[in-house]
Simulated assay, not measured.
Amino acid sequence: MHTIQKRTSFLAKLIVPAMTSAVLAYFVLHAETGQYGSEAKVAFARQLAEHNAEYSELVATREALERRVRAMKDGTLEKDMIDENARRALNVARDDEIVILR
């Protein structure tokens, strides 16, 4: 009775570790540079800071506008203030007035 023995190749032992290393390298690469990776986290943080600054500016603008509206409520207005606000909004001046632009 004859038995056929197969010799194992040196390269055959490296196939599984090589495939595992390739898959691991793929996931590590995407963990660093992917859409939700480490680099994207820094970009998201910077973008969040910019949006927070813009939000703070908009809140301040809104509060200023709300103060102006409260000042213009019925009963608190004087004719001078109405006239001044209307002229400023419409860019209108009389012939005998001097306009100083800031």
Rank of each mutant, 00 (worst) to 15 (best):
I4C: 03
E63C: 00
I98D: 11
A31C: 09
Q47I: 07
Q35M: 05
A31Q: 11
I98R: 12
V59M: 11
L65A: 10
N52L: 02
E66C: 03
A60K: 15
V69S: 04
H2N: 08
A18I: 12
A25G: 08
H30K: 14
D80M: 06
V92E: 10
T61C: 01
L101Y: 07
Y36A: 04
N85S: 03
N85H: 13
S56K: 13
V23L: 13
I100N: 07
L90M: 15
K6A: 03
E32T: 10
A71P: 04
E66N: 09
E57D: 09
D83T: 11
V16T: 15
L65G: 06
G37P: 01
R102K: 12
I4P: 01
L101M: 09
I98P: 12
G75R: 06
V69I: 14
G34H: 02
A86N: 05
M19V: 10
R94W: 09
M19P: 00
A12P: 03
M72I: 00
E84V: 05
A12L: 06
A43T: 00
N85Y: 08
L77Q: 15
A31D: 03
L65T: 05
N52F: 02
K79P: 04
L90D: 05
I4M: 09
L29M: 06
G37S: 04
R62A: 08
I4F: 08
E66I: 09
G75C: 01
M72N: 15
V59K: 09
M19T: 11
Q35A: 09
A31T: 11
K13D: 14
L101F: 08
L24I: 13
S38D: 02
T61Q: 11
L29S: 10
A18L: 14
R46V: 00
A86V: 13
Y36E: 15
A45G: 00
D95A: 14
R88G: 01
G34K: 07
E32S: 02
N52I: 11
K6C: 04
R70F: 12
L77S: 09
I100W: 10
A45H: 05
E57N: 09
S21A: 15
E57P: 01
R67A: 00
M81A: 15
A12N: 10
M1K: 15
F44P: 00
F44L: 01
Q35T: 01
G37C: 10
R102E: 11
M19K: 15
T8E: 13
T3A: 10
K79Q: 02
R88K: 11
S38A: 10
E39Q: 06
T61W: 02
D74Y: 07
D80A: 05
R102Y: 05
A49E: 05
A71N: 08
E78S: 12
H51N: 06
E57V: 01
A89E: 02
N85I: 12
L11Q: 12
Y26N: 03
H30C: 00
N52W: 05
T61P: 03
I4K: 13
A25S: 13
M1Q: 06
L29F: 15
E97K: 15
A71Y: 07
L48C: 01
L29N: 14
I98W: 12
R70A: 12
T61S: 01
L77V: 13
E32D: 00
V23Q: 12
I82N: 01
V69A: 06
